[in-house]
């Protein structure tokens, strides 16, 4: 796998994404979810909320990197809070 030029952070990143996907699948099989309407303007399923959460998190990271001198971990913390909010009340 050397040609893919892996690094520890990217391995961790993709592993976590894979684990999240597997967990979401197991969760879905155990208790299938239904569309519901939260503070987002559209009705969403669990998977939709995960996608929206991750996409916005990516933009949060880009904003912190591009606009500020803050540490990337601040973006990470904000994203975690955002993910929790959107999964719970989205």
């Amino acid at each position: 796998m050397n040609w893919m030029a892996w690094t520890l952070p990217t391995v961790a990143f993709f592993s976590i994404i894979a684990v999240i996907l597997v967990c979401m699948t197991v969760w879905e099989v155990r208790s299938p979810c239904v569309d519901r309407r939260g503070f987002l303007p559209i009705s969403t399923t669990r998977g939709d909320r995960l996608f929206i959460g991750l996409l916005v998190s990516a933009y949060i990271h880009l904003a912190v990197i591009g606009l500020t001198e803050w540490s990337i971990w601040i973006a990470f913390g904000v994203s975690l809070v955002w993910m929790f909010i959107v999964m719970k009340w989205g």
Binding site: M4, A5, W6, T7, P9, T10, F13, F14, I65, I72
Partner: peptide, 23 residues
């Protein structure tokens, strides 16, 4: 796509020489 992500956090000089540069 994963490879592109890997490339984006490194400075790659050749096949064997690459440095992690973060963001």
């Amino acid at each position: 796509m994963m490879t592109v992500v890997n490339y984006s956090v490194q400075d790659i000089f050749d096949q064997y020489t690459r440095v992690f540069v973060g963001t």
